[in-house]
Amino acid sequence: MLLQLRTARYLTLNADILECISSFPDLLSRHSSPFSNLVCLTIDSGKGDFTKKRNMSTEARNFLLDNSPSATLIMDDEPWN
């Protein structure tokens, strides 16, 4: 599914999708990021989920952002670079 979005410049993913992606670190480390044009990646934790701590694995972060090194990552309304 993410390969279909490879030309996206602005992408918002649900935190549940991020959690799912993060649960396969071995698979992610074998594949390069499909995103080479990202300006901003936003992780939307959804209404009511702000109290639940969400984690992004290093492999998931690399998979999503490695080909867009200048992209801004926003999680829980706070930018991460």
Rank of each mutant, 00 (worst) to 15 (best):
L64N: 07
F24E: 14
E59Q: 10
I21R: 03
K47D: 06
N55K: 10
C20P: 08
S70M: 15
C40V: 13
V39E: 15
R6I: 08
S33W: 07
R54W: 11
L3S: 12
I43V: 15
R30S: 11
D44K: 00
S45P: 15
L28A: 01
S23F: 05
L65W: 12
P79T: 00
N14G: 04
L3I: 12
N55H: 10
R61V: 01
P25N: 00
T72H: 02
T72V: 05
G48S: 00
T58L: 13
N62Y: 13
L65G: 09
T51K: 12
F63R: 06
E59C: 06
Y10R: 07
N67K: 11
P79G: 00
T42C: 06
L73E: 05
T12G: 00
R9I: 02
D66R: 10
L18P: 05
L65E: 08
I43F: 04
F63Q: 07
A60R: 02
M56P: 03
N67S: 12
L41D: 05
S23M: 13
W80L: 13
A71Y: 04
L64M: 08
L28P: 09
S22P: 05
T51R: 14
M1Y: 14
N37D: 12
P69T: 07
N55M: 13
N37P: 10
R9T: 10
L18A: 03
Q4K: 14
I74M: 04
N55S: 08
R61G: 00
M75S: 05
N14E: 10
V39D: 13
T72A: 04
F35T: 07
F50W: 14
C40H: 15
G48A: 01
L38S: 01
L5D: 11
D66C: 09
D44T: 00
K53E: 15
T72Y: 04
K47V: 04
V39Y: 12
L3C: 13
D66E: 15
R6S: 08
Q4I: 11
P79F: 00
N67Y: 04
H31R: 13
A71I: 03
C20K: 15
F24H: 12
A15E: 03
C20Q: 15
A15G: 09
N62G: 08
N67R: 15
L18G: 04
R30A: 10
T42E: 13
I74R: 02
